[in-house]
């Protein structure tokens, strides 16, 4: 899932500024599961903003609505009227959700209420960790299902570096050394041959380094271009 965290209230208030009518838009997918921007969080944030506005002596009209998936335009159509009434739209979606809103409603002023952190999973209640960096060409088949791009601090393809110590990364003892994990897994499975050979430099074009990415699936398109 996409894991996000709510911005500090002060930052959100400064983004909201003088706007009188604020619509908070939660999202029912990833950010609900990671307790950052679902219906519940939208409600709590709405109450906080109302209270603090009242304490500062001005009245704001703050509404909340949560859509099932903020990152798809079709789920945003139903809230068009509420958006039209708002001075500002405070999205509690991930960075994709914020932009989907802004694209679907070009006249609306859309601001983010979350900081989108990473693609990861919950390790336990309240703890999430990064697992995928969306590099565009998956190498997990060679590394025992542990990603060195997302999980090695230096993105080494032929690790570990000299800073690996007792299973931990030199950057921070909270970080597990991805290459220790890779070694342990492959060793246990009798597949160390996978990392005996030198892995060549990665072609980063499939990642963000090739420019913003797009996928076109002609087999799925409703309007097929003639060139295709």
């Amino acid at each position: 899932m996409i894991v996000a965290e709510q911005k500090p209230l002060k930052e959100i208030q400064s983004l909201v500024g003088e706007a009188q009518t604020v619509l908070i838009v939660g999202c029912g997918t990833c950010v609900t599961v990671c307790f950052a921007g679902g219906e519940k969080e939208a409600g709590i944030l709405g109450s906080l903003l109302r209270m603090s506005a009242r304490m500062e002596g001005h009245e704001k009209s703050i509404g909340e609505v949560t859509v099932q998936r903020q990152c798809e335009w079709e789920y945003l159509d139903a809230i068009g009227d509420r958006i039209a009434e708002a001075d500002i739209v405070l999205s509690l979606g991930c960075g994709v959700g914020v932009q989907a809103l802004a694209e679907r409603y070009p006249d609306a002023i859309v601001i983010p209420g979350l900081d989108t952190k990473f693609m990861g999973l919950p390790l336990e209640q309240g703890v999430w960790a990064e697992r995928c960096a969306a590099c565009g060409q998956c190498i997990l088949g060679l590394t025992g299902g542990i990603c060195p791009i997302a999980r090695c601090s230096k993105q080494l393809l032929n690790g570990p570096c000299g800073g690996s110590s007792k299973g931990k990364c030199e950057v921070n003892p909270e970080i597990e050394c991805a290459w220790q994990l890779i070694y342990d897994k492959l060793n246990a499975q009798g597949r160390l041959d996978l990392i005996m050979e030198i892995t060549p430099p990665k072609d980063w074009r499939t990642g963000r380094d090739g420019g913003p990415r797009k996928i076109v699936r002609q087999d799925l398109r409703l309007v097929v271009t003639e060139e295709a």
Partner: peptide
């Protein structure tokens, strides 16, 4: 060399590169 991670140094805010690793 791979290089010590930038968080140890005097520009911990910087972006690191690691386009290739020391073996490559």
């Amino acid at each position: 060399l791979s290089g010590d991670h930038q968080t140890f140094g005097n520009h911990p805010q910087s972006k690191n590169v690691h386009d290739i690793d020391s073996l490559q």
